[in-house]
Computed example of a mutant assay.
Amino acid sequence: MLNKKEIQQITESIQRAESHTSGEIRVCVTRKCKGDPLEAAFRKFHQLKMDATQLRNGVLIYVSPSHHKAAIFGDRGIHDAINGGFWDEALEKMVFHFKKGDIAEGICKGVGKVGELIKSRYPISENDINELGDEVILED
């Protein structure tokens, strides 16, 4: 799926995006995604307890490269702040790179786009705490 260098690249993009925001971004890459990727992202979001952040400002980027599926799921604080086409814009940016076979770059572009939104709504605070890990979640 992803090699160590690509995983590190994605982790660093998460850390860069979160360095300007109190929001939380996580990435889950899975081999199998049966059914609707948004439903799978919703389930994974809650399984990871991403709905437990203080400001409800977590976002999960969920990708299944082998099934050519991806979804972005934002918690209530994020979802209420976005315009209707934002997730589509971020997904299109990701898919553009996916089609060229560059999964890691696509994910990094998606993380960057999501980071822009979170930054505008949830700027970094003086006493910011990283509530969720930045590591990439890999699933079989």
Rank of each mutant, 00 (worst) to 15 (best):
Q8T: 14
P37F: 02
R16K: 15
T11V: 13
R31I: 09
C33E: 05
K44R: 14
I14A: 00
I25R: 01
E6R: 06
F45T: 11
R43P: 09
S19A: 10
L38H: 08
Q47E: 15
A52G: 09
Q47P: 11
D51F: 03
A41Y: 02
F45D: 04
T11Q: 12
I14F: 08
V29T: 03
V29A: 07
Q15M: 07
V27M: 04
F42L: 14
S22Q: 09
K44M: 14
I7Y: 08
H46T: 13
G35N: 02
K49V: 14
R16T: 10
T11N: 11
A17Q: 01
C33Q: 01
E6L: 09
D51H: 14
G35M: 02
G23E: 01
G35C: 04
R31H: 04
K34G: 07
Q8E: 15
R26V: 14
E12H: 04
G35P: 00
A41R: 05
K32M: 08
R16Q: 12
Q15K: 13
D36I: 06
K32E: 07
K32F: 12
T21N: 00
I7Q: 14
C33S: 02
G35T: 01
G35F: 01
L48K: 15
A41F: 09
T11K: 11
T11W: 04
T11D: 11
G23A: 04
R31D: 08
H46K: 15
D36G: 09
R43V: 15
F42K: 15
D51E: 14
L38Q: 10
D51A: 10
A41N: 04
C28H: 08
C33L: 06
I10Q: 05
Q8L: 15
C33N: 02
M50E: 10
H20W: 07
I25C: 03
Q9D: 15
E24S: 04
I25S: 02
S22N: 08
A52S: 13
G23P: 05
Q47D: 14
E18N: 03
